[in-house]
Simulated scan of single mutants.
Amino acid sequence: MSDTGSDSTAEGRVRCGFVAIVGRPNVGKSTLLNRILGQKISITSRRPQTTRHQVMGVKTEGDSQAIYVDTPGIHHMQRDRNRAINAFMNQAASQALRDVDCVVFIIDRSRWTSEDDAVLAKLENVSAPVILAVNKVDRIEDRSTLLPWLAELEKRRSFAAIVPLSARHGTNVAALEEEVTRHLPEGIHFFPEDQITDRSQRFLAAELVREKVTRQLGDELPYQMTVEIESFRDEGHIIHIDALMLVERDGQKKILIGEKGERIKKIGQDARLDMERQFDCKVMLKLWVKVKRGWSDDARALKSLGYDLE
């Protein structure tokens, strides 16, 4: 269900543009970016709001370079959670919509929520073409409901295209990429062909530790946890990393460490294995836990910890 009236791609034209990936929390934005790149650069978990930063992924294919920006999920600010970090995540997602050449708006199969409405409202003033990606269609039990649902979605906005897909399994992701390429402007590539992200290894290391905490502890540990890399030494054949996990209360510290240190040991093992795959070398990882009260509701503390929109 796409607009094929005017094909903006042409052989031999060099194209490059920015593509914002937006949607409410936990619809598969990071999974989609990782699938497109064929490599993990954006962490994932089943828990909403795992992504906290804008994460840029670069896909160069032939004459076209698409620079995808994965964003935190746009969500309602609730009274009991109107913390500075929540405001930061919403601002990061909104900022990604400025001056982009295309937007991929992801929703979850046949479920539309008030938070999807909130995302749609933010897109009202966006002049760039918006592609609607209907994710997780592999989980739809009655396939006969899909076409009527897509027709219903067409009424919500004049989308440049509507693409049903499965980011997890890769189904129809190539079709989405083709739609994106059609809307990239002509221009020189901004990044070398072999570069896939603008984020440093240091940033990726911190995110991988945070991913393991989120996956292993789920609802046991509130959102007031972040990771700070205190030391990152690349010696060529081995990288030494010292990472500090910050929480807000003593009870959270006990949860992270676990009985006889078993939890922090497991987090470290899983994170180290992912880092070794990511960096293609041996990694020596040391983890600590520290209580830093109120960091998630302190704008100055957030900036010092890397939560900066600049």
Rank of each mutant, 00 (worst) to 15 (best):
G5V: 03
S8K: 15
A10Y: 10
R13M: 12
V14R: 05
V14D: 01
F18Y: 15
I21A: 08
G23T: 02
P25G: 03
K29G: 01
S30Y: 08
L32M: 06
R47V: 05
T51G: 02
T51Y: 00
V58K: 09
T60P: 13
D63R: 12
D63E: 14
S64P: 01
V69E: 00
T71E: 06
I74P: 00
M77V: 13
Q78S: 14
R83M: 12
A84V: 04
F88P: 00
A93N: 01
Q95N: 04
L97R: 09
D99C: 04
I107R: 08
S110G: 06
S110W: 01
W112I: 14
D117N: 13
D117C: 03
L123K: 12
L123M: 09
V126Y: 10
A133D: 08
V134Y: 04
I140G: 02
T145P: 02
W149K: 04
L150D: 05
E152V: 01
K155I: 05
F159D: 08
L165S: 06
T171D: 07
A175H: 10
E178F: 12
V180A: 11
P185Q: 02
H189G: 13
F190S: 07
F190N: 06
F191P: 09
P192Q: 11
Q195N: 13
T197Y: 07
Q201H: 09
Q201E: 09
R202M: 06
R210Q: 07
E211L: 09
E211Y: 04
T214G: 04
Q216T: 14
L217R: 03
G218L: 05
D219H: 11
D219T: 10
E220Y: 04
L221M: 12
F232H: 05
G236C: 09
I239C: 09
L246T: 07
G251P: 00
Q252A: 05
I255P: 08
G261W: 07
G268M: 11
D270G: 04
A271F: 12
L273H: 03
E276M: 14
V283C: 11
V283M: 12
L285P: 03
K290C: 11
K292Q: 15
R293L: 03
W295R: 11
S296K: 11
D297A: 08
D298T: 07
A301D: 07
K303C: 09
L305A: 13
L305Y: 15
G306A: 08
G306S: 12
Y307A: 07
L309F: 02
E310I: 03
